[in-house]
């Protein structure tokens, strides 16, 4: 029944709706580039969302864990074979995204008789200097875009554009502490908007010409603080630093829980 073009378009639209629904319950993921490196921040309910791909490259994911695993393996294979056969310097997020991830995700999305990947992925690459940091964001349909200094995985495109605006007020950041504070705050805003905006606000609509501010606005401070406090008490904060100053080939470091405790501003700490 999908042979007719109209049917096919309808099927793809259904698929978008289905996928958009899947992400509304997901945890947003915030990525910021600052002087010392790149920080990736999210919360999890048991399954990690941030992974090491190569010496200077990390992956942040949102979606179904099994799909993320599959895609993570594809990236690991590609990165390590390339790094081994050519050189670690030839493994870049730009190539991983354009030649590796995007075609696979797009194909799975458009083959309407098969299941699509329920995954949104952000790839971050730390450079020798901050202007060489690279962030790439890919949606479940295979659309990807490069982002500068700030990256976000969230349920809808409108949240993404709203937070990109907000980020401009909060940057630049000069220390890991300030990167943590700002990322946590941005995460709080994204998480709040994701659960409070009407379900009609989807990837599809957000990416059309509708201005982001017409969909939603930044919530007030008390709402953000209570959202973060609530999540801190229920879920695990997950933070990874791609450390430009590690002095080693490998830059990926998961911040320990005790380290995180010292970085979380007291206003967000759950009341005891």
């Amino acid at each position: 029944m999908y042979e007719e073009p109209y049917r096919w378009i309808e099927a793809v639209a259904n698929r978008r709706q289905y996928l958009d629904d899947q992400f509304t319950q997901g945890n947003p993921l915030v990525v910021v580039s600052f002087t010392q490196g790149i920080l990736l921040l999210t919360f999890n309910r048991g399954t990690e969302k941030v992974y090491e791909i190569y010496d200077r490259i990390a992956l942040g994911g949102m979606g179904h864990p099994a799909d993320l695993e599959k895609l993570r393996y594809a990236l690991l294979d590609m990165a390590h074979v390339e790094g081994f056969q050519r050189s670690p310097a030839d493994v870049t997020v730009s190539r991983l995204m354009k030649n590796g991830l995007a075609p696979v995700i797009k194909q799975a999305f458009e083959e309407i008789f098969k299941a699509p990947y329920i995954a949104k992925i952000l790839l971050a690459e730390v450079g020798a200097t901050q202007d060489r940091d690279r962030l790439f964001n890919i949606n479940y349909d295979g659309m990807f875009e490069e982002q500068r200094e700030f990256g976000l995985l969230a349920a809808s495109a409108s949240i993404r554009s709203l937070l990109t605006q907000e980020w401009k007020n909060l940057s630049p950041l000069s220390s890991l502490r300030s990167a943590m504070e700002v990322s946590l705050r941005l995460w709080g805003i994204a998480s709040y908007l994701q659960t409070s905006t009407p379900s009609t606000d989807t990837e599809e609509q957000g990416s059309t010409s509708l201005p982001a501010t017409s969909m939603s606005t930044i919530p007030d401070d008390t709402a953000i603080v209570s959202r973060i406090r609530e999540t801190l008490s229920k879920e695990t904060l997950e933070c990874v630093l791609l450390d430009r100053e590690s002095g080693r080939m490998e830059t990926y470091r998961t911040l320990s829980q005790s380290e995180l405790q010292s970085f979380i501003p007291s206003v967000f700490q759950p009341a005891t």
Binding site: Y54, L76, H80
Partner: peptide, 10 residues
């Protein structure tokens, strides 16, 4: 070197 890295990351 690459085997150890690959194992650890995967």
């Amino acid at each position: 070197e690459h085997s150890f890295k690959y194992y650890r990351r995967s």
